[in-house]
């Protein structure tokens, strides 16, 4: 399972998101690689789940993978609900092997 967090620079909120998500997944015993990236260098990269601020939606509408959009990047509950929902959906779909 590979999760990419995105922000404009790859140096601020995407890192915050990455740490929050790592925390949440660790507490739930879900193994995943979480990488922070800026939008510009992300183009063409592969990820099982992309987590981004919801204003980035227009840049991600053609992305083939699962996209999770977050409006409040420091709201742990919003992040947990949306990201865990997406990750568990994928794990079920893959028979839990990923």
């Amino acid at each position: 399972m590979r999760i990419v967090t995105l922000c404009g620079m790859g140096f601020g909120s995407s890192l915050m998101l990455k740490m929050t998500i790592e925390d949440i997944l660790r507490a739930r015993g879900i193994k995943a690689e979480v990488v922070a990236w800026d939008l510009g260098s992300f183009k063409g990269q592969q990820a099982d789940v992309v987590v981004a601020p919801d204003d980035m939606e227009r840049h991600l509408k053609d992305y083939p993978g699962v996209v999770v959009l977050i409006s409040n990047l420091v709201d742990r509950k919003e992040i947990e609900t949306k990201v865990v929902g997406a990750v568990e959906g994928l794990l079920k779909g893959a028979g839990g092997t990923k």
């Binding site: 922000c7 404009g8 620079m9 140096f11 601020g12 939008l39 601020p53 204003d55 980035m56």
Partner: peptide, 22 residues
């Protein structure tokens, strides 16, 4: 420049902005 070029991504929570560069 970052806010101008990349838009409103500096805003991370209701009423809160975290402007930064490299």
């Amino acid at each position: 420049r970052v806010v101008r070029e990349l838009g409103p991504y500096a805003v991370i929570a209701p009423g809160v902005a975290l402007p930064h560069a490299r």
